[in-house]
Design a protein around this nucleic acid. Structure first.
Length: 476
RNA sequence: CGAGGCGUAGCGCAGUUUGGUAGCGCGCUUGGUUCGGGACCAAGAGGUCGUGGGUUCAAAUCCCGUCGCCUCGACCA
């Protein structure tokens, strides 16, 4: 027990010091390291593997919905950025600019993309002539840079990896349909691959993407009750097509401006899943994207046949498509247990002389920490079924927690009380910016999304008739 | 950018008040015994104390500057 406490003390307390817990866990589990340039992070192999799995799963979904991948340049001429007024106003403060190259001052400064609407819009303007060219459904996997004031690994770094989808459509309806379709792709992905429940909905004017007509987001509830914007899908209307001359000749012989959308998720998702599922022992990885899905810990490894049995099991599981590691280091078993638990591996298999004798393996699942036994005979099916069960249980647990922590408020005091307890708070809103700002000032909470149903009657801030029901929360 | 805190071995820290040989725990290396929840013994390697200047016979310690990091606010995927 003393040793147990010693282990726990290596990570800050998850309840009382959540930000510190988060920093500890991403560094100590070797997901990331801090980069030499302030605000940047080095994603280590164990962390990057999560991203690779996310990419794989998302790409599959993007292809299924008819999208293709492409790649656009990192550097964007400053003049492109300034073409859409709201866009440049929104992003100017955080854009990094290249002023010198080849030993000379550049005639026109180049910005390092904070997002690619402008350069992609410029190219779309050249590519699209006719309604026959539409729709254009593209996606880009890239890094972008936003010079943020304060940063936190995965959640907010100066440079981050993401995917950004950019589509062009002939009609408003079609573009809107695309916007909503991709939002639901994200939601389904979060559920099945990250075991993460999310709240989706429209964002307020204040919170929307700079240059969009409407922004829709998915918000995830972190362990401490704060919200994290985990993905966005924007309906851009004709704002960018007018700025970048994305025009087409329609069937009726009339030149028309196209309707565009953009949507993206980033490495922030990794932060989201850590903060959704993690516990006092460290990470809890959702099985679908876990870098390591199962670890085999040999017991009494030097005794005859143990290591051989472990190796054979590893090969069988590998062949069955399970991402499995055999920990044959000479650390003690107890050390390995704690280490792999901290790294969040969903299934641990202990294999020792007693198991081999009995034709079984001892199995411990990370989500509940329950130990059980499975027959060695069809280990493949057993482990896969367990991984599936863990994924579902993690989702159910997180979903239950989120649902329990969505409350209603009619007054600012109730709202403040709600967010203080780590809740998402549903409240009425008259629709004016002043009231939104007032809520932020009073409760340090922001409008996350429009609620699915309008249940509130009066505005929480001014008491006038409510126009919308909003989900308010503190956010990362 | 505002407020607080911290920079000493790979990591976590003590030493700073009152200047006087550079320390502890973990980790690491080598050899051996171990192995069902962070094992043990023995021997070893590793630091110009963030950095620049000043005071002093003498600075991790005192003074001035500077850089970096963390937490909390304002801004954002």
């Amino acid at each position: 027990m003393a040793k147990e406490q010693q282990f726990v003390s290596q990570i800050a307390d998850i309840e009382s010091d959540f930000p510190q817990w988060y920093s500890d866990v991403v560094l100590k589990t070797k997901l990331v390291d801090y980069g030499p340039v302030k605000g940047t992070m080095v994603i280590r192999p164990y962390g990057y593997a999560i991203w690779e799995n996310i990419q794989k799963e998302l790409d599959k979904r993007f292809k299924e919905t008819g999208h293709e991948n492409a790649y656009f340049p990192l550097l964007i001429p400053m003049s492109f950025m300034t073409k859409e007024a709201e866009h440049v106003e929104g992003f100017a403060p955080e854009v990094a600019v290249v002023t010198h190259a080849g030993g000379e001052k550049l005639a026109e400064p180049l910005c390092i993309r904070p997002t690619s609407e402008t350069i992609i819009g410029t190219m779309y303007g050249k590519w699209i002539q006719s309604y026959r060219d539409l729709p254009v459904l593209m996606n880009q996997w890239a890094n972008v840079m936003r010079w943020e004031k304060t940063t936190r690994p995965f959640l907010r770094t100066s440079e981050f990896l993401w995917q950004e989808g950019h589509t062009v459509h002939a009609t408003e309806e079609e573009a809107m349909e695309e916007t909503m379709k991709m939002l639901s792709v994200y939601e389904e992905f979060a559920k099945t691959c990250l075991s993460m429940p999310v709240l989706t909905g429209r964002k307020t004017e204040k919170e929307k993407f700079a240059g969009a007509v409407a922004t829709f987001g998915m918000e995830a509830m972190m362990h401490d009750g704060k919200s994290l914007q985990a993905g966005t899908s924007h309906y851009l209307g004709q704002n960018f097509s007018k700025a970048f001359e994305i025009k087409f000749l329609d069937k009726d012989g009339v030149q028309k401006y196209a309707y565009t959308t953009s949507w993206g998720v980033s490495t922030r998702l990794i932060g989201a899943l850590i903060m959704t599922h993690g516990d006092q022992r460290g990470l809890v990885m959702p099985p679908v994207v876990a870098p390591v899905q199962a670890v085999i810990v040999p017991i009494a490894a030097k005794k005859g046949g143990v290591l051989e049995a472990c190796t054979a099991l590893k090969e069988r599981l590998q062949k069955a498509g399970v991402r499995v590691v055999l920990d044959d280091t000479d650390n003690s078993p107890g050390w390995k247990f704690n280490e792999w638990e901290m790294k969040g591996v969903p299934v641990r298999i202990e294999l020792g002389p007693r198991d081999i004798e009995a034709g079984k393996m001892t199995v411990c699942r990370r989500d509940t920490l329950e130990k059980g036994e499975l027959p060695l005979e069809n280990a493949e099916e057993g482990v896969k079924a367990l991984l599936h069960e863990i994924a579902e249980n993690m989702y159910d647990t997180a979903k239950k927690r989120m649902e329990q922590r969505i409350v209603d408020a009619e007054t600012l005091d109730e709202l403040l009380d709600g967010v203080n307890r780590g809740n998402f708070v549903r409240a009425g809103w008259c629709g004016c910016r002043e009231c939104e700002d007032k809520v932020k000032e009073f409760a340090q909470a922001t409008a996350r999304v429009y609620a699915k149903e309008d249940t509130a009657k009066t505005c929480v801030a001014c008491g006038k008739k409510s126009a919308h029901t909003i989900v308010f929360a503190r956010a990362y």
